[in-house]
């Protein structure tokens, strides 16, 4: 009986992921017999290619753990999480979560957050372009409109909070700066944005994560400021706004219509 194409493909995919499964029927050599060694070459190519894609997307993680460890970790991830799309740009979205649950990496508790930063960097790099508002644009908003102003944030903007100094660790591992001792007690929340051609990574000031999250969720400036203050007593509204302007985080604003009084 002829098997359906989807069944044949499912068998093929299963055999790719598990060497214990014999090569699917129809994978034959010139003699017409089964060709397990040829299939093994193909299986290895798939694993290596996807591992290379991860190594390219997570260079700091790769440098921190070393190539051998990274290869082994990537191989585990690839077998567990094959791509769901032919677009490799999106491959590895769940790699940071995988690392968080990967027992051999448990001695590096900051590693998942560094991976999240690298993932956010990549998303920012490929996000849509948008022209940021300048300081003068914000200065032009009538003061009475400010409490109800709703901002559109840059499409490339990402926030990665962390209780570890992930920006310091990341920078040290993607540049030629010689590594130096890091104070792991100091957390760094990262803001990643690509206002123009270059992706920028900045430290978010205290309360800034809640503030930016609120703005991104469409809260008005007034209520986002309240949320920021509530989240951290050190919250500095003016400093946060200045930081976001200089990062190119704002791209548009509108005045939220006053809700009807009834």
């Amino acid at each position: 009986m002829l098997r359906s194409l989807s069944d044949v493909q499912a068998d093929f995919a299963a055999a790719l992921r598990d060497p214990a499964i014999p090569p699917p029927a129809g994978v034959v050599g010139p003699d017409g017999g089964p060709a397990p060694r040829r299939f093994a070459v193909y299986r290895n190519n798939v694993l290596v290619a996807l591992g290379n894609a991860l190594a390219g997307a997570f260079p700091a993680v790769g440098r921190i753990v070393g190539e051998e460890f990274f290869r082994a970790m990537a191989r585990n991830y690839v077998l567990e999480t094959p791509p769901t799309s032919p677009v490799l740009l999106d491959y590895g979205v769940t790699f940071p979560d995988f690392i968080a649950g990967f027992e051999p990496a448990a001695s590096l508790p900051y590693l998942p957050d560094v991976a999240r930063l690298e993932r956010a960097w990549r998303e920012a790099y490929h996000a849509a372009d948008a022209k940021p508002l300048g300081a003068a644009d914000l200065a032009g908003i009538p003061p009475e409109d400010l409490p109800d102003a709703v901002f559109s944030l840059h499409p490339s903007l990402r926030i990665v909070p962390s209780r570890f100094p992930i920006i310091t660790i990341w920078r040290m591992n993607v540049s030629d700066v010689p590594p130096s001792p890091v104070d792991f007690a100091v957390g760094e929340d990262a803001l990643i944005v690509r206002p123009d051609a270059e992706v920028e990574v900045r430290v978010v000031p205290p309360g800034g994560v809640a503030f930016v999250d609120a703005l991104a969720a469409g809260e008005t400036l007034g209520s986002a400021a309240v949320i920021g203050e509530a989240s951290d007593s050190r919250f500095d509204l003016s400093g946060n706004i200045a930081g976001l302007i200089s990062a190119g985080a704002f791209v548009d604003f509108r005045r939220q219509p006053e809700p009807a009084p009834w």
């Binding site: 914000l138 200065a139 908003i141 003061p143 009475e144 400010l146 409490p147 109800d148 008005t220 400036l221 007034g222 209520s223 400021a225 309240v226 949320i227 509204l237 003016s238 706004i241 809700p259």
Partner: peptide, 16 residues
Amino acid sequence: STARNLTTAVLAGAVT
């Protein structure tokens, strides 16, 4: 709304 907890003057000052 919670926005009213912060006065227009406070927000304007911060933006300025």
